[in-house]
Simulated assay, not measured.
Amino acid sequence: MYKGLVACRAGMGSSMLLKIKVEQVISEQKMDLQVEHGNLDSLVGFNGDVVITMEDVAHEIANQVPYAIGIRNIMDKEEIKAKLDEFFNSKK
């Protein structure tokens, strides 16, 4: 089971909505990923496999995490699925 963090700068509305959409995709696709929610301060001590965030934030944190996924449209489950698929394919 992979471990992920869904985060944004403040850890408030946008990342919580993104977490809900990510969990829907994980459930629908039966992906082997468990996600938690937080803000960018949650990166300190994070020992998971992937951070899922907004596209602009992903570019900023790419060097700080094992794998960063940047989502442009947090309501687009197809985009989320495609980027999660890329993550899982990188682990093969």
Rank of each mutant, 00 (worst) to 15 (best):
I80L: 11
K83A: 01
K77C: 05
L43V: 08
V65Q: 01
H59P: 00
S14M: 06
F46D: 00
I20S: 14
T53H: 02
A62K: 12
N89Y: 11
R72M: 12
V44E: 14
I20A: 12
M75K: 13
L43D: 03
V65A: 01
N73L: 03
K83R: 14
Y67V: 06
A58G: 09
K91R: 09
I20P: 02
V57S: 05
I80R: 13
I80Q: 05
F87Q: 08
F88D: 10
E86H: 04
M1P: 15
K30S: 13
Q24K: 15
I74S: 02
F88W: 07
V6D: 00
L5S: 04
G70C: 12
I69S: 09
G38F: 01
G11A: 10
I74Q: 04
V6M: 10
N89D: 11
E79Q: 06
M16D: 05
E28M: 07
V22W: 07
E86T: 11
P66R: 15
E60H: 00
M75E: 10
D32M: 14
N63A: 12
S27H: 15
A82M: 10
K83D: 00
V50M: 06
K91A: 10
T53V: 00
A82Y: 11
M12I: 14
C8N: 05
I80C: 01
N39K: 15
G38R: 15
K77H: 08
E86G: 12
G4D: 10
K92R: 12
L17A: 10
V22N: 05
A7L: 15
K81F: 03
V57C: 06
D41Q: 11
M16R: 12
E55M: 09
Q29L: 15
I20N: 12
M12R: 05
R72K: 08
K19Q: 15
S42C: 14
D56Y: 07
G4A: 13
E23R: 06
V35H: 01
Q29W: 09
Q64D: 13
M31I: 14
N47L: 08
D32I: 09
S14P: 01
S90R: 05
V25Q: 01
G4F: 10
N47H: 05
V65G: 02
H37C: 10
V22G: 09
E86I: 04
R9V: 06
I20Q: 15
A10E: 03
S15Y: 13
S27G: 12
G38N: 12
E55Y: 04
H37K: 01
N63R: 12
M1A: 03
